[in-house]
Write a protein that binds this DNA or RNA. Structure first.
Length: 441
RNA sequence: GGAGGGGUGGCAGAGUGGUUGAUUGCGUCGGUUUCGAAAACCGAUUUGCCCGCAAGGGUAACGGGGGUUCGAAUCCCCCCCCCUCCGCCA
C-alpha cells in the first residue's frame, strides 16, 4: 500500500508518478475526499469519546460514593457533560446511553469511510522509484548489462522440447495427471531438477549469507495480502476450496515476506536475508495460449527465492547485492544473460524498482526471464506491518526486496539449449556436475 | 476428529466490571556513586491514529472479530494460534 499521508500532502505528485505506470489516478482524488471526510468524523467521535470517558469515570465514583452516602450529589464532570444536574443515577444512565449511541453512530460512519479508503489503496500499485526509467511497455525496458556472448553453434541448435524427449520430459504424462502446464519429469531430468535446486540453495546459503527456510506451500489470504498478491491478483492464484481458506503459493516470496509480519526489527539486525526452495503455483490466467510449448510457461514450477528485509537507508544497496546473487548463479552455470531494468509501465504491482534477468536460449531463440529482482520499498511492509527501529528508538517501516535465484524450468531450458552438441547429447555445466553426479545428461 | 489447558507490555508474570495502558520481577537505556567496574540507589522504558508550527492534548489496542453495559483485559458468542491427552494417518 502507498501511504495515505502522501496523498494527503501531495496528491498531484502521487498522481503524476502513478500515471507513469499506466494507472487510472481517479481513485486518488476519491481517496483525498474520503480522507478529509474520515478525519472530520474521526475527530468528532474522539471528542465525544473523551467527554464520555470523563463522565463515565465520574459516574462510577458517584455510584461508589452513594453506597456510603446516598445523598451524594452528582459530580461536576457528569453535570458538565449532561448540561444539567441529574436527579438520580438512572436518569444519568439514560442520558449517557443516548450520548454513547450518537458517538457510536459517528464512529461507525468513520469506520465505513476508512474501509472505502483502504479498498482503494489496496488496488493502487507502488510508486515508482526516482531512478526508475519511465516508459509505457516492455519495449521501454532498459538493457543495463549483458554477460557472456550468445552461444555459437556450427549446427542448427534445437529447442529443448526436441532435445530431451528421451531424457525424461514427459509433458503428456503431466497432462494426463493434472493438465497442460504441469510438467512431469522422469529419470535424468528429474535428477537435474533436484541438482539445480541443491546447487542454488548451497550457493546462496554458503556463499551469499542467506538463511535457508522451509515454508508452507499453502497460505492464508491474509498472508497473500501482506505481500500484495491479494486482493488484486486473485485470478492468478490457485485456491484450495471453500472448506479451507488456503491458497497455493505462487512464489516463496509470499511466506517469506510474512515471517516478520507485525514485528519491529532492530536496525543492527538488518538486513535479514532468507532463501527458500518451494514449488510455485500460478494459473497464468492472463497468459493463456502464450508460450505454451515445452516448459516455457507452466502452472507449477520449482524456484529458489531470495528475500531481504532491511532499513529504508539500505534498500537500494541491497537491491544491487540481491541481483548480483541471482546473476552469480547464471555466471557459474556459464549461461549468457542480460539484465533489464524494467520501466514504470512494465513493473510488477508492488515494485518501486525491478531488474529482470534474462537467460539466452539459443534453441527457442529467445531471452527467457529467469529472475525478477524487486525493491518493494515500504509497500509490502506497510501491509505486513514490518518495521525497523534505530538506536534513538525511531521506528519506521522496513523495506522488503526479493528475487528469484533462480526459477528452474527456464534455467533448465537455458542449460539444455546452451550445452547441446551436434549429436544431440547435452553437457552438464561444471558447477552443476557435483550435484548431478555426471558430466553429461 | 474428540477432551482439556492457555494466549496480557522486550521477556517472565499479576490482574475476573469503575482513574488499569495495565501491580511486580527481569532485561534495556540514562543518572548518582566509583580511578574504572560491579553492587546499590534514582529515573526512564509499547505501538497506531487524530488535532497542533511546536509544546502539548485526545483516542485506540490485553490473540482476532462481534455482543452485553453508563463503563470490559475482566461477562457472553464466533474464529485463530500454542500446549497436553485420546483417536486417525504419512
Amino acid at each position: 500500500m502507498i501511504d495515505v499521508k502522501l496523498i494527503r500532502d501531495d496528491a498531484d505528485g502521487v498522481k503524476q508518478r502513478l500515471a507513469t505506470r499506466n494507472v487510472d489516478t481517479g481513485p486518488i482524488d476519491e481517496v483525498l475526499k474520503l480522507d478529509e471526510n474520515w478525519r472530520a468524523k474521526k475527530h468528532d467521535a474522539e471528542q465525544r469519546q473523551a467527554a464520555l470517558n470523563k463522565a463515565n469515570k465520574a459516574f462510577g465514583t458517584w455510584m461508589g460514593g452513594r453506597k456510603k452516602n446516598p445523598e451524594m450529589p452528582a459530580p461536576i464532570e457528569l453535570v458538565e457533560l449532561l448540561g444539567e444536574t441529574p436527579p438520580d443515577p438512572e436518569t444519568a444512565q439514560v442520558k449517557l446511553r443516548e450520548l454513547g449511541e450518537t458517538k457510536d453512530k459517528i464512529e461507525g460512519e468513520a469506520a465505513a469511510i476508512l474501509n472505502q479508503i483502504e479498498a482503494h489503496l489496496l488496488h493502487l500499485p507502488n510508486l515508482p522509484g526516482a531512478k526508475t526509467p519511465v516508459g509505457r511497455t516492455e519495449a521501454d525496458n532498459v538493457v543495463v548489462k549483458e554477460w557472456g556472448k550468445p552461444t555459437e553453434f556450427d549446427f542448427e541448435p534445437k529447442a529443448h522440447w526436441d532435445l530431451v524427449g528421451d531424457k525424461g520430459l514427459e509433458l503428456e504424462i503431466g497432462g494426463r495427471i493434472s493438465g497442460s502446464g504441469f510438467p512431469f519429469l522422469r529419470g535424468k531430468l528429474a535428477k537435474l531438477e533436484r541438482a539445480m535446486i541443491n546447487f542454488f540453495l548451497d550457493l546462496h546459503t554458503a556463499e551469499h549469507g542467506y538463511t535457508e527456510c522451509w515454508t508452507p506451500f499453502m497460505v492464508r489470504g491474509e498472508t497473500l495480502r501482506n505481500s500484495s498478491q491479494l486482493p488484486k491478483f486473485y485470478d492468478d492464484l490457485y485456491r484450495a476450496d471453500e472448506r479451507d481458506d488456503l491458497y497455493l503459493i505462487p512464489t516463496a516470496e509470499v511466506p517469506l515476506t510474512s515471517v516478520h509480519a507485525g514485528e519491529i526489527i532492530a536496525d543492527e539486525d538488518a538486513p535479514i536475508r532468507y532463501c527458500a526452495y518451494t514449488p510455485c503455483f500460478r494459473r497464468e490466467a492472463g497468459a493463456a495460449g502464450k508460450d505454451t510449448r515445452g516448459i516455457l510457461r507452466v502452472h507449477q514450477f520449482s524456484k529458489v527465492e531470495l528475500m531481504v528485509v532491511t532499513t529504508p537507508e539500505r534498500s537500494d544497496e541491497e537491491h544491487e547485492t540481491l541481483t548480483r546473487c541471482a546473476e552469480t548463479v547464471l555466471e557459474k552455470l556459464n549461461i549468457p544473460y542480460r539484465r533489464l531494468e524494467l520501466c514504470t509501465g512494465d513493473m510488477g504491482f508492488g515494485a518501486a524498482r525491478c531488474y529482470d534477468l534474462e537467460a539466452w536460449a539459443p534453441g527457442v531463440g529467445k531471452w527467457l526471464e529467469v529472475s525478477s529482482c524487486s525493491n518493494f520499498t515500504d509497500f509490502q511492509a506497510r501491509r505486513a506491518k514490518i518495521r525497523v527501529r534505530d538506536k534513538d528508538k525511531n521506528t519506521r517501516l522496513a523495506h522488503t526486496l526479493n528475487g528469484s535465484g533462480l526459477a528452474c524450468p527456464r534455467t533448465m531450458i537455458a542449460i539444455i539449449e546452451n550445452n547441446q552438441r551436434a549429436d544431440g547429447s547435452i553437457a552438464i555445466p561444471g558447477a552443476l556436475q557435483p550435484f548431478y553426479g555426471a558430466a553429461e545428461l
